[in-house]
Amino acid sequence: MDFLLPASLLVLSPLIGGLLEGTFRKLNARMQNRVGPPIVQPFYDLFKLLQKRPILINNYHVIMAYAHLVAMVIALATFLLGGDFLLVIFFHGMSLALLSMGAYGVRSSYSQVGATRELLHILAVEPVLIMIAANLYLNTGTFLLSEIFNSNFLFKSMPLAFLALVAVLPAKLKKSPFDVSEAHQEIIGGPEIEYSGPFYAPIYLAKWLEEVLSAGLIAMFFLGNPVITLIAISVTFTFVLAVDNSTARLSYWDMVKYTWEISIPLVLVNLVLNYVGVL
């Protein structure tokens, strides 16, 4: 497999992520019947954040923000360069854990409550991803993404696993109904509340990378024809946004309950169907 495309994707991922975030905001605004910001607004935001006066709470807190970004970059790099899928999941979970560790490091109670909720996010999302990995292994015989990427239209044999992924995407991207760790109206951004200015920038950037990673996960099911891949990504993201705009926030217990009660059984059924050879 050639090296050029993944490497260039990795280098361009902040750009892609920023544009993706900008498109999200624009689409969101259109769904709410607003005009919305320009698509490049996230870049303006990022540069503005970097120009702001740094206000340091403690070193540990800030280091964890950068560690969060680094872990997310490693997860994305492993994914794009065709590493082990389990490693991607591990680093993704670790990056969230680092964020919540940083949030525990300050005395703000919103931050602490948010950190606890962030850990619940990991509890909701990661098991589903691991189950999907197991399902991938059953179909392709490997955890190595470079080989999985050679497969053609995995959706055909793993439709339920894909549905499970879509079901956890709101929790993963912190969109309503499962934006419990951000919960603007309750804990005002949760783990991110005490970060400001240039120290918030790495978290902001990590969010874009998370979106790119999610796009990659969706693309994994629809490889083969680039047009189909792009259509699948945009349809899925539009769906997630539509759900975001048509639901209220549920409680954190609901989040864990729904993801475990819906997503995990879905993947399990797919696994069994694959095993007995129906799909």
Binding site: S176, P177, Q185
Partner: peptide, 16 residues
């Protein structure tokens, strides 16, 4: 009330 429930969309529509 819709907004504090995390339902920004309804908030926007009602306030318009």
């Amino acid at each position: 009330l819709a907004e504090v429930c995390g339902y920004e969309n309804v908030f926007m529509h009602i306030w318009r």
